[in-house]
Computed example of a mutant assay.
Amino acid sequence: MFLVDGKPLRAFLASVSAIAGLAVSGQAMAQSVVVRSTGPSAQAYPQGRKLPAGASVTLKAGDHVTVLDKAGTRVLNGPGTFALNGQVNRDAAGGTQLATMMARSGASRTRTGAVRGAAGGPAMVAPTGPENIWYIDVSKGGTYCVADPATVVLWRPEKTEEGTGKLLSQDGSTADVTWRAGSALKVWPAASVPLVDGQTYTFSNAVGMPVKIRTVLLAQVPSDELEVAGMIAEKGCTAQLDMLANLAQSSSVGG
């Protein structure tokens, strides 16, 4: 029997493999994802770029780079150099908001229509964008990663009155989409317009210009928020990266 450091060779190799696996996993968990970037350094830090653990971001005056890492979602304002070491803790409210936005609640939330405030309390302020990254904003369109084709939801910004629109696929399939008054959510009409990986759809209504919606179906979705962001960045789902970037606007750091 071959021995290495007093251990059988098979056991030694298994230990090395486990340690290597933990190291790779740790690096993946510690990496950062750029979810929005504007200014002179936007080309160096484009939306969707992954940055390794412990990376430093050097920005010029006028740069605004939003990153998602284990510390949360935050805005880095240039000039300056910022270490992405995960030591900046986000507040509990911000963490809860991010977890809620990335939860795969899907079509279940459409059953009761609009989301309401607590009984007897003031009405909730209408959101300026989807409160969940798995919702598709029909007012903007874009490329969206789909976690579960059976629970995709179409979101509209104006929910006071009844709303209607039409969804058209590349193969000619169409479906009328109708929101009830007071509801911002509508389940994708998959029976009439099936969701297909890489397909581009057109949504149109009488209120605004038609928008293009491209869908990317995911075979599996990680449980970790940062890994989800990294996956949608790799797939080019920029509409969802924009949603994540919007979370950070109230808590910018830097000059």
Results as ranks from 00 to 15, higher is better:
residue 1 M to C: 04
residue 2 F to Q: 13
residue 4 V to L: 12
residue 8 P to L: 05
residue 8 P to A: 05
residue 12 F to C: 06
residue 14 A to K: 14
residue 20 A to H: 09
residue 24 V to F: 02
residue 33 V to S: 03
residue 33 V to N: 04
residue 34 V to K: 01
residue 43 Q to K: 12
residue 43 Q to N: 09
residue 48 G to Y: 06
residue 51 L to Y: 05
residue 52 P to M: 07
residue 53 A to W: 11
residue 60 K to M: 06
residue 61 A to F: 01
residue 64 H to V: 07
residue 66 T to F: 04
residue 67 V to E: 03
residue 72 G to L: 08
residue 73 T to A: 14
residue 74 R to D: 02
residue 74 R to S: 11
residue 75 V to G: 13
residue 75 V to L: 11
residue 76 L to F: 14
residue 76 L to N: 07
residue 77 N to R: 13
residue 80 G to L: 10
residue 86 G to F: 06
residue 88 V to P: 05
residue 89 N to I: 05
residue 94 G to T: 08
residue 95 G to P: 00
residue 97 Q to R: 12
residue 99 A to T: 14
residue 101 M to S: 03
residue 101 M to E: 05
residue 102 M to D: 00
residue 102 M to K: 04
residue 103 A to W: 07
residue 105 S to I: 15
residue 106 G to A: 09
residue 108 S to L: 07
residue 108 S to Y: 08
residue 109 R to I: 15
residue 111 R to K: 15
residue 123 A to P: 01
residue 130 P to T: 03
residue 133 I to D: 02
residue 134 W to A: 05
residue 134 W to F: 09
residue 142 G to D: 02
residue 145 C to T: 06
residue 145 C to I: 00
residue 145 C to N: 02
residue 145 C to M: 04
residue 152 V to L: 10
residue 156 R to H: 06
residue 161 E to K: 09
residue 165 G to Y: 11
residue 170 Q to H: 04
residue 170 Q to V: 09
residue 173 S to N: 08
residue 176 D to N: 08
residue 178 T to N: 13
residue 185 L to M: 12
residue 186 K to V: 10
residue 191 A to E: 14
residue 199 Q to D: 09
residue 200 T to I: 14
residue 206 A to R: 14
residue 208 G to E: 09
residue 217 L to A: 09
residue 220 Q to D: 14
residue 223 S to M: 07
residue 224 D to R: 06
residue 228 V to R: 15
residue 229 A to D: 06
residue 229 A to T: 01
residue 237 C to K: 13
residue 250 S to V: 10
residue 255 G to Y: 12
